[in-house]
Design a protein around this nucleic acid. Structure first.
Lengths: 197, 197
DNA sequence: TTATATTGATTGAACGTTCAATCAATAATG
DNA sequence: CATTATTGATTGAACGTTCAATCAATATAA
């Protein structure tokens, strides 16, 4: 029999190559050839492992969401339990080195746009959107009354997404992400400070 | 001679048809046939008036930016001159009926994603991004010290874009836009209230 | 007014290109 | 040897662009 355990390795290589291609060429110009070439494999392999280009695209998004979720979980385990610490942690996870890489940023934005017209991707985005809000809401609610926590969580979630979008499109993404993280924390801290007055 | 004055009318019809098609099918599935069919014209007319599909896409984005700019200017002329009034006005313009329509929202997001890999579109987006920040910054600076005004303007701009993005992808865009406008104003008002303490 | 000439807006078929998917052939493994 | 993994040439559909032909609207002439 052929080498065993290749399946997962090949799938991961193809997913990485997909993000490389999207980051470099854009979703528009990413083809099964541009992906398979980057992965050092042939075009036919994509249908073999993912059933087709569409399946690979969805798997790549799922992988990005997994990374984001894992990043958050690991950081949360390492941080303190105060609302301020946990909120900082959520922000940091959303602006972590990986997330702020041009590769992830461009891939992410491409998925966002495409998810408008593809139910499979849309469902994944909705889950992620809800997760960010829910995490923020939980920590705010430990300090603020319910309605204020809801407002703050919505505002913080939108601010994170907005900064993220603006940074991804920025001329200097690295510097922009850096500043964004600071601005988001500033907002959260002011909201928490206002709670005790 | 052929009917005169058709040029501008036809161009506008094609731009409208382009946004219809992008809203319905997505940028991905928008073709010169899907556009020209919606405009009730033949496929060749696009090259005749815009030099090609790419030219039409850019013209459509320029049109969206014009509408947003005009909307803002007209509202500004009608509103008071206090910073609070002007900031509210900026928010309202960004969440106006036209902007919040599914058609504009989906078209806008498609342009955002595409602009990452097309310099022509990217330039237009940068100008628009800078305009929103600059308008916000100007009004905040009338009440806040420079560095605080800068922070508030960045935060407000990101919040507007973020809410806009989340609403466009929402299951119920109309309700989401409505709430977003409220949340943005709430943020701005709290920032201004904090200035007098 | 009537008839003819002129204009350029508009059409749609043809063309070359690109792409995702397929599959017969081959390589590699146990 | 038997089995599976992998290749890459091939296919057919879909796309944007082009352009000769058509047509309606106007200008001009008689």
């Amino acid at each position: 029999m052929p080498k065993v355990g290749m399946k997962d390795a090949r799938r991961q290589q193809l997913i990485d190559a997909t993000m490389d291609s999207i980051a470099e060429l854009g979703m528009q110009n990413t083809t099964i050839v541009s992906i398979s070439k980057r992965a050092g494999m042939s075009s036919g392999i994509i249908s073999h492992y993912f059933g087709g280009k569409q399946g690979l695209i969805e798997a790549a998004l799922r992988h990005l969401l997994d990374l984001l979720g894992t990043e958050l979980r690991e950081r949360m385990a390492r941080t303190g339990s105060s609302p301020a610490q946990r909120l900082d942690c959520i922000i940091e996870a959303n602006f972590s080195d990986f997330q702020r890489s041009a590769l992830a940023a461009k891939t992410w934005l491409s998925f966002w746009a495409r998810s408008m017209h593809e139910p499979g991707l849309q469902r994944l985005q909705q889950i992620n959107k809800a997760r960010l809000y829910s995490n923020l809401r939980y920590s705010f609610a430990e300090v603020l009354p319910a309605s204020q926590a809801t407002t703050a969580a919505h505002q913080a979630a939108a601010m994170i997404d907005g900064f993220w979008l603006r940074s991804a499109l920025s001329q200097d993404p690295a510097a922009s992400f850096e500043a964004s993280e600071h601005f988001c924390k500033d907002f959260v801290h002011k909201v928490l400070a206002g709670a005790s007055t």
